[in-house]
Nucleic acid binder design. Structure first.
Lengths: 261, 261
DNA sequence: ATGAACCCTCACCTGACGTGAGGCGCAACC
DNA sequence: GGTTGCGCCTCACGTCAGGTGAGGGTTCAT
């Protein structure tokens, strides 16, 4: 009687999905067969359901998770925006990861030359920013820098070595949340805070900012092998002017505090 | 006695890994503790193992899978190349997916205007290429086009409408492997093969080639709702010259065969 | 001695299916 | 009317790199 009903295999070919996918979507209530034989459990679909099935396949090929697909199919507007944002930041993260991986392949696992330096305490003004995870540190840092340089109090800044204002990034050693990134700007007069001095293990990073992890890891390995745990945040001193230097030649001092001595 | 041994928690802080990760790596044999208390099962690590642990964390942050991390740490050269290639193609796929998703968000789920057209049989020369999966179709197609246009037999080509040589892509409806993509070039005289004519469901795609899926899905939905299964490969007729048209304005005819009638 | 912090194993959860086992159902052919 | 072969069913387990929690033992400092 129901000659316009298709078995799951026929429908799968029509919709370019696997039988397993269709069963899974049925189980989730995302696409229920038009009829299910109560005795045998056989699923039967109408040809008209193929549009829905194809839409699921299309959205899945765009990496939209099934719960969001369900929202889209039920007509919820704007359900895709969160997915889009997530995919975009994931894409950006992967872009950086690939570039860094290529550098690791060229240079080998990082092993920087480590020096011990002594730094005086410095008066600074700071801007803090919360990062939602390790992958968000890059965004948080540049946001903090922008806020700091836009502050009117930044008029009284030092001009160390003639290289423009001296910025120092401060990053917690522990990656557990909440992750607070701080950027400090060295001032001439007394600042709102004093960045403590002391001795540091330091290494020079040459290359894009998003590959600083390589040098930081080498530095942390150096410290760890000596059983030293950093008593404060890792510092990055931005030596080059990113507006005038190509990313591959940017020079950054990376420093791990060793103590006040 | 062993005062230089660290508990798993201390070592985890030093290496910026979670305790769970360290236990997992122990289980996999990737990073075994220096000593395991036989009575209590407590794991103890040497500070010197931190470099290894940090390297694992670094490579994991670059999306290198743990088995490959193990190879790298055991000194296998070139172990990363396969990973790099995989990450690169995945990155490219995600780039396309994001652009397509943004178009879906702007235009809604695809619903193209479908016409029924009749096409004559045409003499053609063809180039075939294997694709290793749905994500590889773009590469395979452009490889086939390049091979076809480099063929010396392409001298006798038609110049339909003055728009240069007429290329037609042929893509199987089923996405199961092996996936063979073919590209046909219409010739004036008798070709090596004859592309069968018949009636087709056709829709016009405007936009980049990697978003043709949108129009194809709309077309397949149209066919599926009428219970029609394509008896041959889907055709794409490239109307615009990709060398002279920006990707957003490229025009392509997408056609699903309906039969010989 | 006691409490806090630390550590152990075991078991189950994530997403979106793929794979395979073991067992019926269905259509067609002889 | 039997048989063959394919299609369909459910159930259970694997993927990957861990996270989460239960329930219980250990270590260390008061």
């Amino acid at each position: 009687m129901h000659e316009d009903l298709l078995t799951i295999g026929q429908f799968a070919r029509l919709a370019r999905l696997s039988v397993k996918q269709l069963r899974h979507y049925d189980e989730l209530g995302l696409l229920s067969p038009a009829r299910v034989d109560e005795l045998t459990g056989y699923r039967y679909y109408r040809a008209g359901q193929a549009r829905q099935a194809l839409s699921i396949g299309l959205l899945r090929s765009l990496d939209v998770p099934l719960p969001v697909v369900a929202q889209v199919l039920s007509g919820t507007a704007g359900a895709l925006e969160g997915v889009r944002a997530g995919l975009e930041s994931e894409l950006e993260r992967r872009r950086r990861a690939l570039a860094t991986l290529e550098r690791v392949m060229a240079d080998g696992l990082p092993s920087a030359q480590v020096r011990i330096v002594r730094e005086p305490a410095r008066p600074v003004v700071v801007a803090a920013e919360q990062a939602s995870g390790p992958g968000d540190i890059a965004r948080a840092t540049s946001a903090a820098v922008a806020r700091l340089l836009a502050t009117p109090a930044a008029g009284d800044v030092g001009d160390v070595g003639g290289g423009g204002p001296q910025l120092i990034g401060l990053f917690p050693v522990e990656l557990s949340e909440p992750l607070t990134v701080e950027v400090a700007l060295v001032t001439d007069g007394p600042g709102e805070r004093t960045l403590p001095g002391g001795s540091f293990a330091a290494a020079t990073h040459v290359g894009p900012y998003d590959q600083i992890d390589l040098t930081a890891h080498a530095l942390l390995a150096w410290c760890a092998e000596r059983g030293v745990a950093a008593p404060g945040p890792i510092r990055e001193v931005y030596v080059s002017d990113p507006a005038r230097t190509p990313p591959g030649e940017l020079v950054t001092q990376v420093m791990v505090p060793l103590g006040e001595a």
